[in-house]
Design a protein around this nucleic acid. Structure first.
Lengths: 215, 215
DNA sequence: CTCCATCAGTACCGTACGGTACGGTTCGCC
DNA sequence: GGCGAACCGTACCGTACGGTACTGATGGAG
């Protein structure tokens, strides 16, 4: 108990060593490729060239591993702050379209879909611990970015709404509709995956028709 | 091979005997209560007072049982046709609000949530067979009802849209937003489950602001 | 009554998983 | 060099599940 603190922390200071991060990376890969059934402790250990004993030492049990995977993935997604110069109508729309496209891209991502499927499958039992974690780390973040953007638009006199949450819900619904659920159910490969730009633009147009201030 | 056709078919002529329907009912109950892990062949046999051998005889294997559960549940949900008299603005809005509220009620139902969780969890492997089945039997039906309603509104000169699919997507998104996903992730018990009437009304107002013809 | 099909109940088998324990190896530190 | 911690690889254990086989009971048809 003297000089023992030379542990190499990972880049993101979330108490994980680089080795553990690499293990979580492999675990995510397994999950994306084969779903929850492929995510066995033996499989993770084999894919990551580590021992099961280490897995249990680092993450406690299987649920701890799942939680660590979600936290790890969330820590890699950084929502770029807007906070650009002053807003005019054109730049607000551009920011909204960029947000909408980013949202669609994130939701359609392999890892996001796999983690959402995992948390949803786990939601029945155990009080949906993973679901709440995923919501906290994922939706909360992107909701903050949207909230800031909407608030900036209102301050600039370009948007009119009373309840920010309601306006955000409308924006989200117009952008995503039932696409997220359909992708979660497995309906993707039909190439209709890259109208995201067009989808985003039309959704923002509709949103502005609802909440944009007449000029 | 003479008089052997005294088999008692169930009420819905989907080739299922009443006994088999009762078994599927118990299976759905198990799924709703305990999630996929609780839906074991032994558990279903015990809950339904039948033998595992009968289960495999009737449904082939576990996947066949799951598919039968989805088909069985879908066969019980009947979408009432609209097809009332002529539409005016008030009755169109009333129909839209009723549709929106029904949609929210269906999506928030125990069995619907459990089946969606099941299909989503299964979507990674096996080409998402269950997902497509659920989409065909569920979304297609309710989409037809909405499509007919929107088309009637357009014929009556009350709605203006070029792409019916796009208009339906906007309506769905405004009504549901991310509520379905949040419920799938397990975030329900906070009593905010019965603003459905209010939610439906506001969403329809927004939809009419977008696609309603100025009077 | 007898035959036959169906079905409940149970025992059984192979497999696969979560979790633990142990031997052997590397590596930093005194 | 020698010590100890961390760790890989693997073997191991208990359990639980999907699926199959067998026995006995029921009930309808001839």
């Amino acid at each position: 108990m003297q000089g023992v603190e030379t542990i190499k922390r990972s880049s993101s200071g979330s108490g994980l060593t680089e080795r553990q991060g690499a293990v979580l990376e492999q675990a995510l890969r397994l999950l994306v490729d084969g779903g929850e059934r492929a995510l066995t402790t033996a499989g993770v250990a084999r894919a990551a060239n580590c021992s099961k004993e280490s897995l249990y030492k680092w993450f406690g049990d299987r649920d701890g591993l799942l939680s660590a995977m979600i936290a790890f993935q969330a820590s890699k997604v950084r929502t770029l702050d807007v906070s650009g110069g002053v807003l005019d109508a054109a730049s607000l729309k551009a920011h909204l379209v960029a947000f909408a496209k980013d949202l669609l891209d994130v939701l359609a991502g392999d890892v996001s879909l796999a983690l959402n499927r995992l948390a949803i499958g786990q939601a029945s039992r155990e009080g949906s611990k993973l679901g709440r974690l995923l919501e906290e780390r994922g939706r909360r973040q992107i909701g903050r970015r949207a909230g800031a953007l909407l608030e900036a638009g209102r301050k600039a006199g370009l948007l009119a709404f009373s309840d920010a949450e309601e306006a955000y819900g409308a924006l989200y619904g117009l952008v995503v509709s039932d696409w997220h659920l359909r992708m979660l159910l497995g309906e993707n490969p039909s190439g209709l995956k890259k109208n995201f730009g067009l989808r985003a633009e039309r959704a923002v147009d509709a949103f502005l028709a609802l909440y944009g201030r007449k000029v």
